[in-house]
Amino acid sequence: MIANVLVGLVAVIHLCIVYLEMVLWDTPRGHMVFKLTPEFASASKVLAANQGLYNGFLAAGLIWGLYLGEAGFQFKVFFLLCGAAAGLSGAATAGRKILFIQTVPAMLALIALALC
């Protein structure tokens, strides 16, 4: 039960990232969250939407794994590993706080799954 709650939390995190990158990127809120200038946000919004789409795939995979119940164990593990790897890459290239937003929750969910 705790593992599935954590997997669901990670899915929600990725859905929030989808919204931030695909909808709010070129708005004052998006500028604040991602520390962007309006000029950069405008010029990069197509790239941000593409990033958001990938986060949507991660959320969809996690939700699918939850929907499948016990049969979705491998889906949950795979998509959590993908999310953790994306977080590591983002932390190395964009900002360290991504490690705590993406990687740590995914790793906690993986640990909880392993203990089930």
Rank of each mutant, 00 (worst) to 15 (best):
G69Q: 08
A71M: 02
E70V: 08
T93Q: 08
F73W: 11
N50D: 09
R96N: 04
G52S: 14
A59N: 13
N55C: 10
A60P: 14
A49C: 11
A84Q: 09
G69V: 08
L68K: 04
L81V: 13
F75E: 01
G72K: 08
K76Q: 06
I63K: 02
G72F: 11
V46P: 00
G72R: 06
A92R: 04
K97Q: 09
W64Y: 12
W64R: 01
V77L: 12
G95K: 00
L58I: 15
G52A: 14
I101P: 05
I98L: 09
W64G: 02
L53A: 15
G65T: 01
A60R: 09
G69A: 07
G72Y: 09
S89Y: 15
Y67W: 15
L66Q: 02
I98N: 07
R96H: 08
L68Y: 04
S89D: 03
I63C: 03
F78W: 11
L53F: 15
E70I: 06
F78G: 06
Y67V: 14
L53H: 14
L99M: 11
L81E: 10
C82T: 12
F75D: 00
G83C: 04
G56F: 13
G61K: 04
F78C: 08
L53Q: 14
F73Q: 07
Q51V: 09
A85I: 15
S89R: 10
G90Q: 08
A91S: 06
V77Y: 06
G83Y: 01
N50Y: 10
A84L: 13
L58G: 10
F79R: 01
V77W: 04
G56K: 14
F78E: 01
G95I: 02
L62A: 03
F79G: 03
K76V: 01
F73C: 04
A94F: 10
L62Q: 01
F73D: 03
L99S: 02
L62F: 02
S89C: 07
G65K: 04
F73Y: 14
W64F: 15
V77T: 12
A48G: 02
A86I: 14
R96G: 06
L99A: 08
A91N: 03
I63D: 02
A94K: 05
S89G: 06
A71G: 07
Q51S: 02
L47F: 10
G56C: 13
K97Y: 12
F100L: 13
A84V: 11
A49G: 14
A60E: 07
